[in-house]
Write a protein that binds this DNA or RNA. Sequence first.
DNA 1: CAAGGAAATGACAACGTCGACAATTTTCAT
DNA 2: ATGAAAATTGTCGACGTTGTCATTTCCTTG
Lengths: 339, 339
Amino acid sequence: MVSIVSVAKAAGVSNKTVSRVINGEPHVTEDTRERVEKAIRDLGYIPNMAARQIRSSRSNTFGIITDYVSTTPYSVDIVRGIQDWANTHGKSILMANSGGLPEREAEIWKMFQSHRIDGVLYVTMYHRVVDPEAGDVSIPTVMINCRPQTSELLPSIEPDDFQGARDLTRYLLERGHRRIGYIRLNPILLGAELRLDAFRRTAKEFGLAESDLSIRLGMEGPVGAEENYVFAAASEILQQKDRPTAIMSGNDEMAIQIYIAALTLGLRIPQDVSIVGFDDFRTVSLALKPELTTAALPYYDLGFQGAEWLNSVISEEKVRASRRVISCKLVERTSVCAL
Amino acid sequence: MVSIVSVAKAAGVSNKTVSRVINGEPHVTEDTRERVEKAIRDLGYIPNMAARQIRSSRSNTFGIITDYVSTTPYSVDIVRGIQDWANTHGKSILMANSGGLPEREAEIWKMFQSHRIDGVLYVTMYHRVVDPEAGDVSIPTVMINCRPQTSELLPSIEPDDFQGARDLTRYLLERGHRRIGYIRLNPILLGAELRLDAFRRTAKEFGLAESDLSIRLGMEGPVGAEENYVFAAASEILQQKDRPTAIMSGNDEMAIQIYIAALTLGLRIPQDVSIVGFDDFRTVSLALKPELTTAALPYYDLGFQGAEWLNSVISEEKVRASRRVISCKLVERTSVCAL
DNA sequence: CAAGGAAATGACAACGTCGACAATTTTCAT
DNA sequence: ATGAAAATTGTCGACGTTGTCATTTCCTTG
């Protein structure tokens, strides 16, 4: 492998001068710089990060640790956001998946440390409370899409489920809907309570009574192996006398079943019943006809801003923990009609 | 940072002996080994990969380069498969996303080289032909879910779209369906032709005429911004006199629209029309009611076996290129009825 | 033209690890 | 007891880079 030494020899200068050119340091003649750069090009020299790291004890690498990568497929956008930030800022990404297993998570932390990564992004695939196995470790960490359970504070960055659900509810209310159904998310998801709470409060603010709301549990049980009541719940709600004119779905995926339930009963969407989702899981929200009005989870931004934040935590060395929240943008499509 | 030297001092042995213990080399007394291991535990020593790499010029790290990570969300299972293999074999994963941009891809190759990774897994998020920007580079590479365009051969590992579609078609034919509709995948996907071809051939084998098949294009245009004709096509097919008794969907996602089209026309699934998908994109295939019979793309195995293969390419140093194909397993659910 | 200072360049060591080889100790058959 | 082989342990240097400090060259100014 061609090293800095070969380049130095080729350019007829010392190692250190080559190093200066590579790192854009001052005190190099234009002439020398060009000669060195030519040698670098000719030899196809590429700096060795490992060597650099040994000298400087900075690896310019972030670690990403995820739990289940496949449960909520769209949340991979978090990773994309991180990568984009990293890419444009000269950082590399070391990635590992714990599969949710604590012992594997511990191994991963160790692996990260052996690579002397500068910081860790702890990413969960759905919004939840976690207890990272990192208590003993002093690596700068930012939690993305989750928050730490223990009191020891780590910075966390999360979607604003409350605001998203409030906006959706308002959207329905402003369009004249006064009887609204709600199919709840699996309660073990952090979003479940936040979204339901926002729904209830906003409905109340607009003067609706609890009896105007038909709230049903859509799913429960461990993620990946949950009981699914969505279709049944939706069918039941839609067969009530005085059935709701709109149904809010815990998420887009569950909205599929609500569509099917409605259509099976011969109801038209949105004329007979309006439907809104949550997440803007586009594989679903755009495949449904009419296309689904929903609130977009800011996955990409979660990742991008999380990476940015981690970087500032690393350089400032102050780990003043706090929680940041990113809003969910309402995406208007055609699954809702005004009354 | 605690290094091998501090451990050696604490244990009262030489650096080299510590090194031997760490690497499980022979020629160390049980007694010494224990003393060293205790020192390692006490000091919380973790080997420095960068230093190790400099010595051995092997980084034990694989690079993953992906294109669009979010188009076909489930394909992240490829990455999970890779990670699982890597995790259990002591390899680390450096990951980057090109976003499909050639210039960024070039940067990524450079970044990988600067980390002196042992090999690259070139992963695409949908099955296609690619032209990796790596022609000049001599890093061992395995292509996953894609194949190289240029004649220069790189090992590639792909799903068996043909076999999957053949099995699905047979499944329908064996259950008595004799008029079958087919909504085609976007032609720019490699799977599109393979699947359609399998469908046609298998139908012919069973004695069906071309006129028994209603084949329509479901989508076209660049991935991520395609024109979508699925709903219209399905509606049209289902309103034919002598309408098909079954419809094969290019993929699961498109099946959503077929369900909606059928239900909107008052048809029951599967009594009036049977439907099969492709991919086993579970977010969809399990959300649809009745649940969707489909062929599972072997994403996880693609990744897992790809990593394994890369490893053997690296160690054997023979890059005898070839193509491997992994079969798609038929997942039987309840969206098909026998006639 | 000399003196002083700034700019340019280089020599060398050190980061943490392990391979090559040397030195020391133990084991064991005679 | 003795020598040889085997097992154990240690010394030293090199990997590629950059920080520290020294040296050389150039320029400015009186």
